[in-house]
Design a binder for these strands. Structure first.
Lengths: 242, 242
DNA sequence: GTCTATACAACGATAGAC
DNA sequence: GTCTATCGTTGTATAGAC
């Protein structure tokens, strides 16, 4: 993944074009990321079957959970024989680990690019929130899976996930403090406010059923999270146009 | 469970005394709730062993997940033989269903009592939030379990859980509207605000590790959720003393 | 590279001795 | 009421034909 500049506009389509989180290029990246674990040489073939396997895993894990899903289930859902599966994955647990690894790499990529963009406080917050929501749109299955199946992963990966969340909130707080120093914001409990944002963003992928039911769009939700954050920062909507 | 009046003060200890969600009386209630499913007649013995079984289940499910936990694990953790276990539970799936049923009954109990209290808008919201936080304190294992293992439960129970969440948010919105009618609140998107509260309350039990780490207490967190709700309702802190 | 056939461990559940 | 012993099933994983 290359570190190109951040998209100029905040919209699903701009995000989609700027970041390689879907289609064949994405699956190609996934393939590179755990090439070692599999025995298949032919790249074209491998990428296609990887996609089938991961997609089937998401479907079954969403329905009944990863632990409850048997490899026989997976084999029939992915239309690949049991023996065939094992040329693509090292073991069942391995499959889960790889999924977590890919998602975390994607998140790191976004965080990195955003830091390089170096925007003013309000714009940074808005970009952070909208990007996270767009990200969930592209990688919903991955988020869902990683959240629900975290307990089944190696301790090391569990730890990395917790640290990612702490780092995210700390970086939010840093932006708050930049804005406070600039006289744009006021906030008594910045860390609690940061965790409010985390809670809202997490709810977006955890409770997709609820927002589908209420016909709340990506942008509706992102805008609401952003607005409520600005309220928490005692920041008037007019300043938000920055 | 009897429908006594709501505690006068909002504090953990008052809540603890007013509601029967811990200690021997609580386990007695649990016993009554699935007496049918078990073969043991002796009530004293049954209650004691039920507590051991449920406690062990929570420990193992929290560590590795309910599906990944075998009944042999459970048998040794609870210090009851495999055969013995089956005099207390109908089946493994049954055990999960009972847990969900008990928690939902507890929540219904609280909701019911709160409705009977019939307080003014601001007080209702404050009581709702603090009660929910106290509830999680007493029944943390149950909440944790039900959230994580929902997928493994019968469709009917999954549906009831979703409906409980929708009902909770609708009742929040109704309180908002009472306050708006009275000129106390202003709010453009009441349903979004309600789901913000849900997200924050859910985070309290989902991310216990985070708040333990930061030494945020029950009351700290409840107060923050309440304050941020009032901000969302455009309600000055002074009015909150009501 | 992909399949079928199979190994063997672990599972949930039960029967029957105590 | 509780235990040990055991049933049949299903799980992950692999070997070897094609």
């Amino acid at each position: 993944m290359s570190a190109a500049p951040w998209p100029q506009t905040l919209s699903m389509s701009a995000f989609r074009e700027a970041l390689p989180f879907e289609g064949e290029p994405f699956w190609q990246t996934v393939f590179e990321m755990h090439r070692e674990k599999m025995q298949i040489k032919n790249s074209r073939l491998a990428v296609a079957n990887l996609e089938k396997i991961f997609t089937a895993t998401f479907a079954l894990a969403a329905e009944k959970g990863f632990q409850a899903m048997s490899l026989r289930d997976l084999s029939s859902e992915a239309q690949i024989s049991m023996g065939g599966l094992y040329s693509y994955i090292g073991s069942k647990n391995d499959l889960a680990s790889v999924i977590e690894g890919v998602l975390r790499a994607c998140i790191d990529e976004v965080v990195l690019r955003l830091q390089q963009a170096d925007l003013p406080p309000v714009a940074t917050l808005k970009t952070l929130i909208f990007s996270e929501i767009y990200m969930v749109e592209l990688l919903r299955d991955w988020y869902q899976f990683c959240f629900m199946e975290l307990k089944g992963l190696p301790r090391e990966q569990q730890q990395l996930t917790l640290e990612l969340e702490l780092r995210f909130e700390r970086s939010l707080v840093q932006v708050f403090e930049r804005g406070i120093a600039a006289g744009e914001f006021r906030c008594a409990q910045p860390l609690m406010l940061a965790s409010q944002v985390t809670a809202q963003l997490e709810q977006w992928h955890l409770k997709q059923w609820k927002f589908k039911l209420r016909k709340v769009s990506n942008d509706d939700y992102a805008q609401y999270v952003f607005d409520s954050l600005l309220r928490g920062l005692d920041c008037t909507p007019s300043a938000a146009q920055a």
